[in-house]
Design a protein around this nucleic acid. Sequence first.
DNA 1: ATTGTGGCCTGCCCGC
DNA 2: TGCGGGCAGGCCACAA
Length: 260
Amino acid sequence: MPELPEVEAYRRLAEERALGRVIEEVVAPDAWYLKGGIDAETVATALVGQMFSAARRIGKLLLLDADDLVVGLRFGMTGRLMIDGADAVGELLYTSKADRPEWDRFSLRFADGGGLRMQDPRRLGGVLLDPEEARLGADAATVTLAMLRVALGASTAPLKARLMNQAHLAGVGNLIADEALWRAGLDPRRPAGGLQGADARRLHKHLLGTIADLSDRGGSHTGDLRPHRAPGGRCPKDGTELVRDTVGGRTTWWCPKHQH
DNA sequence: ATTGTGGCCTGCCCGC
DNA sequence: TGCGGGCAGGCCACAA
């Protein structure tokens, strides 16, 4: 399930292997995968003959800068990026590791013979041209405490929902949200705007720490809480049985003893 | 503007 | 052994 750590791995892969190569062909067999009212012909006309000069990332959105446009790649929950057959992320929690031709939703072939592919069994990702980058909030991996306070604002929404709102803070998905709140000892249901002083500082510290740890370990599914997100699971800190509920529309697990 | 809800997509796993 | 239902969740449309 690509969250920020996985997309950052995709970005590095693209930076290493996709820049400076002339695009010779666009293969976009799945019209549903092209977002923003574009079709395969539009994408091909825009991209063929160009090359990428930079690979950027905002939250979970990968941005490839071509000569006169930007390609945005969204991976949803089950998307994978492969370049010349290489995969940046060995394992995704909720997607098959299989590589099937029918799961190729979008591909670019380079003039040198290699190519870039998006594999996505569930078709939850997509391709955008010139995405509106300003619609995304601060990137969660580098957010400062002051920016986090702005992102939380005076919102009455549940803290977890606000953290996952990409317009305010970009890059936090369900697993990272649960892990960071668990580490910070904060109840996912409490109002986002109610965080003061030490609570906000603790959230900031553990949000950055969670993202750094999970990136080092190899993905958003490598959190300390993750193995216990199951019926009967207990808090690895204090042994209390975890609570499962829906918060912000997402399945949420937390420890009723130490998260307040 | 804010917040919450439902639907989309498909593979997988469980119980019958 | 096959089948149906539930589940996973990122994103978006929509309602109030």
